Simulated assay, not measured.
Amino acid sequence: MRKLLFVLMVGLLALLLTACGGETKSSTQPSSTEKQGTEAITQSNAPQAQEFTFGAATQGGLWYTLAGAMGDEIQKAIPGSTVTVIEGGSITNLLGLESGKFQIGFSNGQTVPEALNGIGKFEKKAENIRFVATLYPNVYHMVVRADSDIYTVEDLKGKRVSPGIKGYSGELVFQQILKLNNMSYDDLAKVEYVGTADGANLLRDGHIDAIVGMIAAPVSTFQELDTTIGIRLIPLSDETISKMRASNDGFKTYTIKAGTYNNFKEDTNTVAAYTVFLANKDLSDDTVYTLTKMIVENAEKWKTLSKIMNSFDGQFSIDNQVGPIHPGAEKYYKEAGYLK
């Protein structure tokens, strides 16, 4: 009996030791299921390769050049991705972002509130547009040849003008400026709807008298014109500027400094609206976090493309936010210390 009891006790002790050993092993070495879960969490933090359609603007302006440069960096930041740059425009890009045809794109600061509120060219309120970054002021230019007899907005009466592409924000701003000066297209001799580069060629060849539009200052196309035929910039009156600012808080007073274009020696008062980088809200947080990081941390590269970017950094970007921010962008600005 004692012998049988001893055997039973030894067996029970062995079972206890085995159980303890099993618990120790499971606490230090995760199961295959747990390993898979950890790997899945790690992989989820990396944005997936995808096709980006990038709404920019016509060739000859900074938007197109900047979109190309950013597209290259996107493909480095998110390997396997492709970026197709579209010659869109401020309004076209917003419509493309809202519909999901564009994943990313540029727009002008004064146009974004119109889209969000469903006014102007927008039939209903936009719900899918999210802020990523503010880049630089987009400046209203009215450019004529140096030997032109045009010195004011009113002097455009009877003249041939290119307001850019029909329906672009630059054209809409021009129509507003004409209206504020008691004018319309009926007062002009001709309207040519062409992009910046083509407009410059028409001005150079004497086929038009002025180019107008919302564009970076300086823009390379106008710098080239300045060195070949010489240009002047037509200022806006203080009254026009005040009325424009009252109509839309996206407009800011701006002075194009003398020397911005080498042969023009006078300051020019005008208006500007910030160029913003936007994304469709359905882009993942990880993707937009990576895009925001790419934009902010390549600031020095963008500055080599145009002096207009010299003020750009993460703080400038978030301080001039336009519209609701994408959660991925918000995460980056907070982690980088630009946003509390």
Rank of each mutant, 00 (worst) to 15 (best):
D205Q: 14
V322R: 10
A133P: 00
S99Y: 04
S107M: 03
E300R: 09
A57S: 15
K340M: 11
D147V: 08
P327W: 01
I104M: 10
F251R: 03
K265N: 13
N138Y: 02
A210T: 08
G61T: 06
T92W: 08
N262P: 12
K340E: 14
S31K: 04
L97C: 05
M9C: 13
S32F: 13
G195K: 07
V144C: 07
E335Q: 14
E266F: 10
I104R: 04
I241N: 09
T292Q: 05
K179L: 08
S306N: 15
Q315Y: 05
T253W: 06
D285K: 10
D238A: 15
E123Y: 09
N93K: 07
K159A: 08
G88T: 03
S148R: 07
G323K: 09
G118N: 06
Q36E: 15
T228G: 03
Q29G: 04
E127F: 01
G109T: 00
G60I: 07
A197H: 12
G170I: 01
D249Q: 12
A258Y: 06
A246E: 15
I229F: 03
L225T: 07
E114W: 01
G11T: 11
V7K: 14
T152W: 07
I150H: 06
Q75R: 13
A14P: 02
M309A: 08
K281D: 09
M9L: 15
L4M: 11
L278C: 01
R2H: 08
Q75W: 02
V322Q: 14
I129N: 00
G167M: 05
D209Q: 09
M9V: 14
I215W: 01
F52W: 07
W302K: 07
W63G: 02
Y140N: 08
P235K: 11
A56P: 06
M1E: 13
Y193P: 11
D285W: 00
K281M: 01
V212H: 01
S169E: 08
T221G: 05
L95A: 03
G314Q: 12
Y140L: 13
T221E: 12
R204T: 13
A40R: 12
L4N: 11
I119E: 13
N310A: 12
M214P: 01
K35L: 14
G213I: 05
G68K: 13
T111S: 05
G96E: 06
F312T: 02
M70G: 00
S247G: 14
L156Y: 10
S26H: 11
I211C: 09
D319A: 09
A133F: 00
S27D: 12
S247K: 06
V194C: 06
K257E: 15
Y151Q: 13
Y64P: 00
A216D: 14
N128H: 13
N128L: 01
I231L: 06
N108K: 02
L116N: 10
L178V: 03
S184E: 08
K35D: 10
K340L: 09
L188H: 09
E192T: 08
A46R: 12
L178N: 10
S247V: 00
A258E: 09
D209T: 02
N248V: 01
G68D: 09
L13Y: 11
A115E: 04
G71M: 10
I74F: 06
I129W: 02
T240L: 12
D187Q: 10
